[in-house]
């Protein structure tokens, strides 16, 4: 019977540990920017799913393509219909890990500059990415910020010649997520 209660206690600890390791994005924003001489196009989505497991430093982001908001309704339509083909490929996602040589404890207050490596899937095409990211921890919240560049060609997103002057070949993507421990 003693053994049983010990095991029970152990399993409770296991649950507690699990809860501390997993952090979920409570406020997140992914934006991108295309800059050409003719037109600057910016779009933003705040409907982003994000999760982080500090036990193995894994990271996961997922965004629904149709949630990106553009300054013009027509741009949004073109984005979904012609470029992302959102009905065929509804989401874009990133699966990766935080690479940090100093192995710092991200839950402690402070600012950490780390590398994030992983696989980004856009338009059904998965590609390896590596980027610098900054994590800032304050009052039990971790805010992660990163930006990187995505080449449309890499993800087989066609850019017809008629729009070549108003749509950049490479898009700047920014991610800003605030994580809180999973409850």
């Amino acid at each position: 019977m003693k053994k049983l209660s010990f095991l029970f206690a152990f399993s409770l600890i296991a649950i507690a540990a699990h809860a501390q390791n997993v952090w979920l994005g409570t406020a997140a924003e992914i934006s991108f920017f295309s800059k050409t001489a003719i037109e600057n196009i910016e779009a933003k989505s705040k409907v982003v799913g994000a999760a982080m497991n500090l036990a193995n430093k894994s990271l996961f982001f997922k965004v629904k393509n149709t949630t990106f908001k553009f300054p013009k309704a027509l741009m949004e339509e073109h984005f979904n219909e012609n470029y992302m083909e959102s009905e065929k490929y509804p989401t874009s996602e990133f699966k990766g890990t935080i690479v940090d040589s100093t192995n710092s404890d991200l839950t402690k207050n402070g600012t950490y500059s780390v590398w994030v490596v992983g696989k980004l899937t856009i338009h059904g095409v998965t590609k390896d990415y590596k980027t610098r990211a900054t994590f800032t921890t304050k009052d039990g919240k971790i805010r992660g910020v990163a930006s990187f560049r995505v080449r449309l060609d890499d993800h087989k997103i066609e850019r017809p010649s008629v729009v070549a002057q108003s749509l950049a070949e490479t898009i700047d993507v920014s991610v800003d997520v605030t994580f809180e421990p999973q409850k």
Binding site: L7, S11, V22, F60
Partner: peptide, 23 residues
Amino acid sequence: LAGALLLLSSSPLFAQDDLSKLL
């Protein structure tokens, strides 16, 4: 019972390997 309990309690540990399922 102990075995079952351990198995049950540790199952979230397996689940967290796949963060995508968490969302």
